[in-house]
Design a protein around this nucleic acid. Structure first.
Length: 758
DNA sequence: ATCAACCCTG
DNA sequence: CAGGGTTGAT
């Protein structure tokens, strides 16, 4: 509504023509603000629900206010007004003021209390009186109401302007009236207490509007009331500053409200746990029934309560866990787990007792409580773990110092088995999340991961090129912190499962890959905490991650095949590919889902692509799909294949340029002297690259293409066209037209098997 | 903004 | 061969 005011006054003179358009917009905005108000009150109400029943009266007050704000304003009051439709349409932008005005008038009429004129601001303009006359005479439309002005033959614009001014003045007056009513002892009593008042108010609908204003709102209105009657004399800046003040005040009030709610929630939680302790110890269950009463009330609005509980847990975790010493985190986690187990036991007990008493509704309540508790504990757990992760990612403290008393196995709990409830990051990485943990990898349980060195070497998921260049003293925490949340495989599977000794297994897999990779590729992990503040942003560079995961998968497979560690990443990868490439065709390995290479593209596919390059240098993606029909295509696969061919071309053209220059250096003068045959060195190089095993007869056409390309390069270099940085592009343009049909046999899924059998 | 291609690097 | 950066086309 302040927005409305501002906008209204800002645009009053300049936007007249858009009134019709603006109507809906303003209506919607006011509706949304009403929704916000009622939402706040609903939350507030839920908070009170969560408290004991003694506070139900407050709740009623709030409920009344919520209802008043949400519905009474818009619906009930409108019904009271009995306006004609055209009038309503005109009034919609100013519905609040207008409705209130009209309501107050009718209210006054019903009460028979006069003296409104005394409340009207002294600056009331003649229009006000005019308007009052109109309204009181129950005229059906604004047009009719304004007809007295129309007698002065106003055009449409003029009438609109008057209408606005008129409404403005009316609004100001109404707010003064409201203020006056708020100052009356009756309203004060209403605002500070009791359900009775509220009920009484509900009986008399006409009272609702005035009293539906909370003290906060009345404060706001008080501030405004003095300005609005004179607003036409105020400058725009005053308007803005007033608006800001209102906002600030509003914010402050909301903050206070929120704090209050948080306090209440904490109280509620304490009571909640107390209740469970007492129910556990008490045999007669008298307390239990009381609990159930509370619980019924509490769970009456289950969704909101759950939300609140989760929030409260988050708050508690933020406040408390942040202050804990890191070495306490594990204890905290254990305690939480014990708590949960205990509570589960209690739930079971309670269920039994409930059954014995035939209180099935309480049984259901218990179930819901159990669910809520589980949620709460899970979230608390995640908070603990997140904090642990954060702690580790900040100070360069060796893990073994953090948990000096713990055996290495338990470090795994911290680093690996941490959080069964981390979903957010996981969901973002669903693309390869389930591809990360293939089943047949039990052999990795025993790999030397558990030692601190490996953990220190573990790389974050996004291994940047610069990592090897920085050579900073590696921060052990940073790497440890990163992969965890994203790589958790089976989150939420169980409430107690995350303590089991096997939990570290799935988590360790990606770590293995990255630690290997870092060992192989870069001597230094080189990740400063600045590079990786807190929890990483895992959402980006998913393609890179996928590829990294693929690489680590290779490494892991290699590791499972043989314990020999390659000396470099490239060597390792190629070795693994040659050794274990066939594994990719096995069903269990190819169960990778998502976008990894393994999902569809095997080394054999690469081989096939290379052979296809003999026929086509620029395959279209549709062609690729046709010829790799055994691959489930997605964006990643397609781009991967395209990248393959791009790399093929790259090599091809590099060789061409090299041999062309070589020919020039060798004194070849004429283009016609350049001939590519199967004896040519160029051919051998190309064949070695694309047909390494020499198990495919290079088509003659490829020789022609190579020769043409070589000649193109030759003549270009001879003509010194290579001074142009993009001189190769012309050549590419020629070569791309030389693609020929790929034999149908390449479309066969197991073409290579057939080929190699021959 | 997105994609493909190129270019360069490792 | 993959990744990153750049460029040009859409």
């Amino acid at each position: 509504m302040p927005d409305h005011d501002t906008e209204f006054h800002l645009n009053r003179l300049t936007k007249r023509r858009r009134v019709d358009i603006g109507v809906k917009r303003i209506v919607s905005s006011s509706a949304s603000s009403t929704q916000t108000a009622s939402a706040i009150i609903t939350v507030n109400r839920a908070a009170f629900d969560a408290m004991n029943s003694r506070q139900s009266k407050k709740q009623d007050v709030l409920e009344c206010q919520g209802a008043q704000l949400g519905e009474a304003k818009s619906d009930v009051l409108r019904k009271l007004l009995k306006r004609g439709s055209s009038y309503e349409d005109n009034m919609i932008p100013f519905s609040d003021a207008t409705i209130i005005t009209n309501l107050l008038k009718s209210n006054k009429a019903m009460r028979g209390t006069g003296g409104r004129e005394s409340v009207v601001p002294r600056k009331a303009e003649p229009e006000l009186l005019q308007e009052d006359t109109c309204s009181n005479s129950s005229l059906e439309s604004a047009e009719e109401c304004l007809s007295p002005f129309g007698k002065i033959s106003l055009d449409h614009m003029g009438s609109e302007r008057i209408n606005k001014e008129h409404l403005q003045a009316k609004r100001a007056r109404v707010e003064n009236i409201i203020r006056g009513m708020n100052h009356s002892p009756n309203v004060m009593a209403t605002s500070i207490s009791s359900g009775k008042d509220c009920e009484r108010e509900l009986e008399g609908e006409t009272n609702i509007t005035a009293q539906s204003f909370s003290p906060r709102e009345s404060n706001r209105e008080n501030k405004r009331k003095q300005k609005l009657p004179q607003q036409q004399q105020h400058s725009f800046q005053q308007m803005v500053s007033t608006h800001k003040q209102q906002k600030v005040e509003e914010r402050r009030q909301l903050k206070l409200q929120l704090e209050d709610m948080q306090k209440q929630l904490k109280q509620f939680q304490e009571k909640f746990f107390q209740i469970y302790d007492s129910t556990d110890s008490e045999a007669d269950g008298g307390n239990l029934s009381e609990d159930s009463i509370r619980s019924d009330g509490m769970l009456g609005d289950g969704g909101i309560n759950e939300y609140l509980i989760q929030n409260s847990v988050a708050d508690r975790s933020d406040n408390e866990i942040a202050d804990l010493d890191p070495r306490c985190f594990l204890d905290e986690a254990k305690a939480l787990h014990r708590e949960q187990v205990l509570l589960d036991g209690k739930m079971a007990k309670q269920e039994g007792s409930l059954r014995s008493k035939g209180l099935m509704s309480m049984h259901e309540v218990g179930k819901r409580l159990a669910e809520t508790l589980k949620q709460e504990l899970n979230s608390a757990m995640s908070q603990v773990v997140d904090t642990v992760v954060n702690v580790f990612s900040k100070p360069p403290r060796p893990p073994l110092q953090v948990f000096p008393s713990l055996p290495a196995n338990e470090d795994h709990f911290v680093f690996n088995g941490n959080n069964p409830n981390v979903h957010t990051a996981n969901q973002r990485l669903q693309c390869f999340g389930d591809a990360v943990f293939p089943s047949p990898l039990d052999s990795f349980v025993g790999v030397p991961l558990s030692c601190a060195n490996d953990q220190t070497e573990a790389l974050p998921l996004v291994v940047r090129k610069s990592a090897s260049e920085h050579h900073q003293s590696s921060d052990p925490g940073a790497q440890n912190g990163h992969p965890h949340p994203s790589l958790h495989p089976s989150s939420l599977s169980g409430n107690t499962g995350f303590i089991s000794p096997s939990f570290h297994h799935p988590f360790s897999l990606p770590l293995v890959g990255y630690s290997f990779q870092s060992t192989l590729g870069a001597s230094s992990t080189g990740y400063s905490s600045k590079d990786s503040p807190g929890l990483m942003d895992l959402s980006r560079e998913t393609t890179s991650l996928r590829t990294k995961m693929a690489s680590s998968q290779h490494l892991m497979l290699n590791h499972s095949c043989s314990p020999v560690l390659p000396r470099s990443t490239a060597e390792g990868l190629s070795l693994i590919k040659s050794e274990c490439g066939d594994l990719h065709d096995m069903s269990d390995i190819s169960s990778y889902s998502g976008c990894t290479i393994q999902e569809g593209l095997s080394p054999n596919h690469l081989k096939k692509a290379k052979l296809m390059f003999f026929y086509t240098r620029y395959p279209s993606s549709s062609m690729l799909k046709m010829y790799f029909s055994d691959v489930k295509f997605n964006r990643c696969i397609t781009s991967q294949l395209i990248k393959w061919f791009s790399n093929f071309r790259e090599f091809f053209y590099i060789q061409m340029e090299k041999f062309a220059r070589q020919a020039i250096n060798n004194g070849v003068a004429a283009v016609d002297d350049i001939i590519v045959s199967r004896d040519s060195e160029l051919y051998k190089v190309l064949n070695m690259h694309y047909n390494k095993a020499n198990d495919f007869e290079v088509p003659e056409r490829f020789l022609e293409v190579a020769q043409i390309t070589l000649r193109e390069f030759f003549s270009a270099i001879v003509a010194s066209r290579d001074v142009d940085p993009s001189w190769k592009k012309a050549i590419y343009k020629v070569i791309c037209k030389l693609d020929s049909e790929v034999p149908e046999i390449f479309k066969s899924a197991n073409y290579l098997q057939e080929l190699l059998r021959e």
